[in-house]
Simulated scan of single mutants.
Amino acid sequence: MLVLNTTNFQPSTFLLVGIPGLEAEHYWISLPFCSAYIIALMGNFTLLFIIKVEESLHEPMYIFLSMLSSTDLVLSTSIIPKILAIFWFNSREIDFHSCLTQMFFIHSFAAIESGFLLAMAFDRYVAICNPLRYTSILTNPVIINIGLSVVVRAVSLVAPLPFLARRFPYCGSNIVHHSYCEHMAVVKLACADTTFSNLYGIIVALFLVGLDLIFIAFSYILILRAVFRLASDEARLKALSTCASHICAILVFYVPVVLSSVVHRFGQKVAPHVHILLASSYLLIPPMINPIIYGIKTKQICERVLNLFRWSCK
């Protein structure tokens, strides 16, 4: 379905390459992708179930965690089934509007994930710096408003990207050199000046992910200042231990994002498959790792998971 004429058109379908240069290894690459997706589904559904049924976990920190888990489920499901279809069945076609829908879900829910990580940083800041006012500050209405603000912010800023892409004329090839409908990879096929769309995409990424990362760093500066003011080493260690899971989740999400961005901007000599694998990692790894991190680090969750396995074995 390669289109080579120079007539402007809106293609009915795009063709996703998968991982350029590694087409012969698609089957073997699919195994870790599939395993990661299964772990992400099982882990996040288990986390949501435990938070729902365990009354001791009905606290702001775990409500935010349930929001993060829900986001992880949507984020991983928006890309992995189609990627596996490419790897296993060579099902590379994707409808034009389905491609734009996938683009919206990928970028908006990545932004939502970043927003919830920031919300969880605020939760840790209040818990450590204002512990006596924790429940009075983070009430249920406040938590709901924070959650809605994160979603509305991401959706309103990301929504113009697929709409701009839809308005472009396309000619020549309809092959997307990516494993999913990433904004830059799709817009690159347009036969028009895409400067505004590209610039808007960069500004949105910097405003959402970049600004969130700055505020998270600032929150932890305040947290560390408060922790080192505590009288005993035991109190400091206990306070920092409550942040351990969140710090791991931050690193798991932002390190691949920053690395992928740096390689994309400055790694002109880096092989295309490296770009694609890095771009896929920050959408796949956090949904898989986050439930494991919180399952291991949170005593109530860990005990409940162990009890579930004991019950299932009887």
Rank of each mutant, 00 (worst) to 15 (best):
L65A: 06
N44T: 02
R236P: 12
F33E: 04
L138M: 10
I128M: 06
I50P: 11
S241D: 15
P256V: 00
P11H: 01
P160G: 07
C181Q: 04
E182M: 06
M103R: 04
Y294N: 01
L15E: 09
F104Q: 02
I289W: 02
A111H: 05
P131L: 00
I223H: 11
I289L: 05
P141D: 00
L47N: 06
L31H: 07
H183R: 02
T6I: 13
I94S: 01
L48V: 12
T194M: 09
L75I: 01
L277Y: 06
P20C: 03
P162G: 00
M184I: 14
P11F: 05
R166N: 13
Y37I: 01
I83L: 12
F64D: 00
L68P: 04
I292C: 01
S12V: 11
I221M: 08
A85S: 14
I112S: 00
F196K: 04
A190W: 00
Q102C: 01
L284K: 01
S260M: 06
Q10T: 15
F215T: 10
Y37Q: 01
H275I: 03
F207S: 12
F89C: 08
L47A: 07
M61G: 08
F207L: 13
D193Q: 10
G21T: 05
A235C: 11
F218K: 12
R167V: 08
L189Q: 05
H246M: 09
F9G: 07
G295L: 02
I106D: 00
C171N: 09
S173P: 02
Y37P: 10
F87P: 08
L47P: 15
I106G: 00
M184D: 12
Y282I: 02
M184A: 13
L138D: 07
P160W: 06
E113L: 06
T101R: 06
F9M: 13
A205H: 12
L224P: 10
A119E: 02
L118V: 07
S56L: 12
Q10F: 14
F253G: 02
F266I: 03
H26L: 03
G21Q: 02
I292W: 02
T194L: 10
F89A: 07
L206K: 13
A154V: 11
F207E: 09
M42T: 15
A121I: 05
L65D: 08
I50E: 10
L283A: 08
I19M: 03
I51N: 14
V263A: 05
